[in-house]
Computed example of a mutant assay.
Amino acid sequence: MKVVVIGGTGLIGSKLVGKLGEHGHEAVVAAPSTGVDTLTGAGLPEVLRGAEVVVDVSNSPSFEDEPVMSFFRTSTSNLLHEEAKAGVLHHVALSVVGTERLQESGYFRAKQAQEDLIKASGIPYSIVHATQFFEFLKGIADAATVGDTVRLAPVKIRPIHSDDVAAAVGRTAVGTPVNGTLEVAGPDEFPLDELIRKGLAAKNDPRTVVTDPGARYFGAELKETTLVPGPNAHIAGTRLADWLARQQ
């Protein structure tokens, strides 16, 4: 099976390409460095020729409201247009658990716009909603930092290892389109403030994490269950404590 991986040089994309190759599939890396640019459409007709599945794990280089919306609208529209012409049978996209509940955030509004374009395209699709990756703990902290203080709400979160995300996306890509959304999360649930406190301590990061129920998450107000998946989510196996131990 030929699977084109948009964003195939990134954290998830590179792992996904490897996993698909291990299972005998032709995984094709599509990224600006390989001559494929979804923003301009350059290289898309060529790379999609003969592809049965397209997996989009690309991300915007900017999280600012206007650039991120432009990125996801333009790249997704170009990609879906060329997929329709190429006869692609399954479009898979990676998104985030809670996207529909985080619409105060410009980033998540852009992700919702991406999902809406996919659903309206007429191409069979599957959207994988993952919780935040272990590797993104520093990014969460950075976004909530003022001076040396990190303010975070004590809401629930189930972080996940990027390997487990790539495995879930890979299983979805070679399966039957669900024409809906699948959720995947890690095995352990933490309060968000405690999670980031653990992550920073493991890296000897001196910032202080302050528990603030009103703290926003990338601009969005959080409720207790905003960031956690529903009861039918696939629960991955890698525990945060084991991952942190390996990092040290």
Rank of each mutant, 00 (worst) to 15 (best):
K15W: 01
T131P: 04
I235P: 05
T172Q: 13
D188V: 14
A110Y: 08
F136A: 14
D56I: 01
T211I: 02
P45N: 11
T38S: 07
V155D: 08
G175C: 08
I6K: 01
L89F: 03
L200P: 07
F134R: 09
L195E: 04
I140Q: 07
V228E: 07
A215F: 10
G21A: 08
R207K: 14
G237K: 15
K85Q: 14
E100G: 07
P61Q: 11
G147C: 09
E22C: 02
P61A: 09
S62K: 05
G18A: 11
S126V: 00
E224M: 12
V96D: 05
S62Q: 06
K223L: 03
V97D: 05
A110F: 05
G180T: 07
A173G: 04
L192T: 05
H23D: 03
Q114K: 12
D65N: 10
R49G: 07
H129C: 00
I235H: 12
H25E: 09
L117I: 11
L195Q: 11
A167I: 13
H234V: 10
V150C: 11
V184Q: 03
I140K: 02
G186Y: 13
V29P: 09
P159C: 04
G186M: 10
G219N: 09
I6V: 15
G41Y: 00
V150L: 10
G41I: 06
I123E: 03
T145Q: 11
S121T: 01
I123P: 00
S58K: 06
V150A: 12
N204V: 04
T181W: 03
K111W: 06
E221Q: 09
Y107K: 00
V146G: 03
T131I: 10
E52P: 04
T149A: 11
R151K: 13
G35Y: 02
I160M: 09
N78E: 06
L137V: 15
L200A: 08
F71L: 04
T131S: 13
G50N: 03
G24V: 08
H91I: 04
V96M: 12
A42D: 08
I160Q: 09
G106S: 12
R109D: 08
S162N: 10
P67H: 13
E194N: 11
V28L: 04
V5R: 06
K138F: 12
A130L: 00
V209G: 06
N59P: 00
G170S: 10
G199I: 07
S77E: 15
Q114H: 04
S162G: 12
I140A: 07
G175K: 10
A236C: 09
H161L: 11
R109K: 15
H23C: 00
L39T: 14
R216I: 05
E26Q: 07
A93Y: 03
D164C: 10
A166Q: 10
T238R: 15
E135C: 06
Y217H: 14
F134I: 06
F72Q: 03
V178T: 15
H161D: 15
Q248D: 12
A153C: 08
E221A: 15
G180P: 14
H23T: 03
I140G: 05
P45E: 11
G214V: 05
T74G: 06
R197Q: 15
K138W: 10
K223Y: 02
R197N: 09
V97Q: 04
Q248A: 14
A93N: 02
G175Y: 10
V169W: 01
I235D: 07
P159R: 03
A166H: 06
V55R: 03
G186E: 10
E26C: 01
G98S: 06
D164N: 08
G219V: 05
A144E: 11
V165I: 15
E224A: 13
